[in-house]
Design a protein around this nucleic acid. Structure first.
Length: 284
DNA sequence: CCCTTACCCTGATAGC
DNA sequence: TGCTATCAGGGTAAGG
């Protein structure tokens, strides 16, 4: 499941492989992958002949700046991998796997291929002179990037003090902080010794300081390991990770806590499974 | 406004 | 062996 570190890894890979080459055309194999515009020809006409100047990541969204031969902006391309989406840089002759949803053709018989088993992933074509958040509504309420200067302990305290909701639920919503998903949320809460069900407004100052630190640590470790910490995530060249990371709690229901040996518990919060150690995550 | 729940989908796995 | 049921989950929309 791609979260911030995985999407960041994809972004870096795309910036090494896809820039400055004119898009020669494309093919949409699954129509619902296209979030905007809904018309396939309109989408392809908008991007054909442009080149990618650079890729940016915002939360779990990928945004490519498109330019013409004179470097003039031609709009943007947006991608969200959701659950199972992959962006792969391949030779066009590579066999088209069953779950291929969209292809973009580049010179020298290369292509950027969107493969997505569960089909939740989305691609947007953003017209010139249009703010991306106007087309990708998910960007409108996006919280601060965790590695930006604004994401301080004070900022977190301010945002949490009025919220009468479980802290885990808030971490999953992108409005509080951008890019955290279920795995990194559970791991960050374990590292900070906070139960996922704790009301955000009841967290102590010390707990919020620990949480802030833990969020940065788990995400940075994920980025350092190329997004392969907890999953079989693949980079843009299809190279598999090494499962190098060991989860403290995620996916370890019923197993012994790596710190105290207590059985890891699992509960449902906002429709998502939350894993935690009832002993380690019980401090003030 | 605030919060919760259902939904989209396919493949892996558990249970019979 | 083979079938069916269940589960996983990001974001969005609808409902309370």
């Amino acid at each position: 499941v791609p979260e911030l570190p995985e999407v960041e890894t994809v972004c870096r890979g795309l910036n090494q492989l896809t820039l400055g080459k004119p898009i020669q055309g494309g093919e949409v194999l699954l129509h619902r992958t296209l979030a905007y515009p809904l018309c396939v020809d309109e989408f392809l006409d908008g991007i054909t002949g442009t080149a990618i100047a650079f890729w940016n990541r915002r939360g779990k969204y990928l945004l490519a700046q498109l330019v013409n031969a004179d470097g003039i902006s031609q709009g943007m391309l947006g991608v969200h991998l959701r659950m199972t989406g992959q962006l792969l840089w391949l030779e066009q002759k590579e066999p088209i796997s069953k779950h291929t949803r969209l292809r973009l053709f580049f010179p020298d018989n290369q292509e950027l291929r969107f493969v997505d088993t569960r089909t939740f992933g989305k691609v947007w074509g953003i017209p010139p002179h249009t703010p991306p958040e106007k087309i990708i509504t998910g960007l409108q309420k996006m919280g601060l990037e965790p590695f930006s200067d604004g994401f301080s302990v004070e900022h977190l305290k301010e945002r949490l003090k009025t919220r009468k909701r479980a802290i885990k639920t808030l971490l999953l919503e992108q409005e509080l902080v951008a890019g955290i998903g279920n795995i990194y949320a559970d791991e960050a809460l374990f590292k900070s010794g906070i139960q996922p069900t704790m009301m955000a407004c009841e967290l102590t100052s010390t707990q919020i300081e620990r949480l802030h630190q833990a969020i940065l640590e788990v995400l940075q470790k994920g980025i350092d390991e190329g997004g392969t910490t907890f999953s079989s995530f693949r980079g843009v060249t299809g190279v598999n990770g090494n499962y190098s990371g060991v989860a403290w709690v995620y996916g370890r229901f019923g197993q012994a806590c790596r710190v105290c040996g207590t059985s890891i518990e699992r509960i449902k919060l906002a429709g998502r499974s939350s894993h935690f150690c009832p002993k380690c995550q019980n401090s003030k």
